[in-house]
Each structure stands twice: as C-alpha cells, then as structure tokens.
Amino acid sequence: MPTPSVAPVGTEIACVADEGCSYLRALSTIEHIAGFEHTARCYAAAASRCREQGCWAARKRDARAAVEPPAPIPFKAVHRMSLPPAFAGHEAVTVQFNRSNLVDIVSDCSGNYIERRCIDLGTLPARGDSLGSLYQYWSDLRAAGACRFSNIDTVQLARSGIIGKLHIVDVRSSDPQDFRFELFGYDVSIGRYYESPRAHPVSIWADGLMRDYNTVRLTAAPRLHRIRCRLGDTSHHYTRLILPFLDKRGRVTRLLVAIREEAGDNIKVQAGH
C-alpha cells in the first residue's frame, strides 16, 4: 500500500493514497478536533466528491475480499501457535525479547479471552515502522513541550501511514465509563461501530480498554501493548500504542491510539472449538 499523503490539485486537497474518502474524512475529523475548521472543511469537501462518485477504496476492499475469502481455521490450531515452546525436561527457558514477561490474561464463560502484554517503548523507534515513526513524532512534541492536540500535524500522521489505524479517544471525563471515540480508524476491524469503549458487548474487552485508557490518562505516560484475543468467533492479534495529549492546563484530555495488526489478526474461528 502506498504511503498516504495529500497532494495539491488546484486549490483543493485531493487524496493520492490507496484509501479514498474514508482517509480524507479521517483527516477532516483530526483537523476538526485540533480546531482547524477551515482545513477540516476542505478535507470534507474533497471526501464528499469521493462519496458522490462512490468510494472506490471500499469497492477495492470488497473486490479483494471476494477474491480471497478468509479461510476459517480451527481454534485449537490458533491456540497452539500462541503458546510458548514446551518446557522440555523442565529446563528453564530464557526469553530473548526485550519486553515484559508479565502477561495479563482474562476470559469469560462465553469463550472470549484477552491476552495482554506490556512492551518496552524503547524498542519502537528502532523498528522504524508506522508505530515507531508516530512515537518518535510524539516524543519530539513532548520534548518541545507542545504535546497539545492542536499542535498535531496531519501531514506528519499521513506520512506515518497510520491514518486508518488511529483512534482518538476523548478522556476529559474522570469516569472511564464516559470515555468516547471521537475518531475510529476506518481500517481497524476490532471494536468498530461502538461510540465508546463501554458500549462493546464483551464486558472483559470493554473493561480492559477503559482500564488501559484510564491508566494513560492518569499517568500521562504512553503505553505499548501486544494483544491477542478472541472475541466471539474472531481472533485478533495486534500491537497498540496509546499516546496522551494535554490541554492548556496540562491535563490529559485526548488519547491517540494507534493499532498495528500482527500476523494472524482478524481470523474467523470455527464454532465449537
């Protein structure tokens, strides 16, 4: 997928990325939240043109889905893959990864489970991928004392190639039940169509989200998690970066959440396994 960017066409903004109007609408929302109404309107106008002529990004996605239907795989196979190597002869196994070994696992009686691992943020910039460049950008903002959402640069976000994988969460309320998504990444499958984390029907999932968001809100420190979960008939595997943004008084009021799907994400699991 080419790196999303914006390019000048006349006096309007046009999308030259793989994603069409969803991409421009996301940019419009970010500009609106950042307080730049005029720029938001220009992005929205460009998106509406795309809407009038049909969103070709959606058509492309549908065509791709029609060609390659996701093959359901037995749940047991997924589960086996996710387990660490067997402890042969009860020998100690040295974990070679620079990350926390503390894994938080929760499950419910409906068969849903969430395995969540905290990862060291220091490993991110070295990877140089979308999450790494986003974290680097946020670190630069923080170092300059400009970690306010109105200072966000949509061009920089677009360069990171992460627009469709971004959530913006309003955390102005001190009650996590009132947290709500101001933007939900159009390219993120998990948890879509819910305006707030608490609205998700799987309560362990909703509780986990609210807890993680609230931790970042209270500590004002970014967090990186690797998450494997099974919700209903779908298993997910992704890395999540949560970045706090402050208001003028230095309170965390918004979170920028970026998702990177890992191998084995969004796989349908056969019922009964």
Binding site: V6, P8, I13, T39, D153
Partner: peptide
C-alpha cells in the same frame, strides 16, 4: 496550515 497540507509539507 491549509496551504501547507495541500503542498504535503510537514511543519
């Protein structure tokens, strides 16, 4: 800001 975005330049 608008013109900068149109030009695809970062801050």
């Amino acid at each position: 800001r608008l013109r900068r975005a149109q030009a695809g330049m970062t801050q």
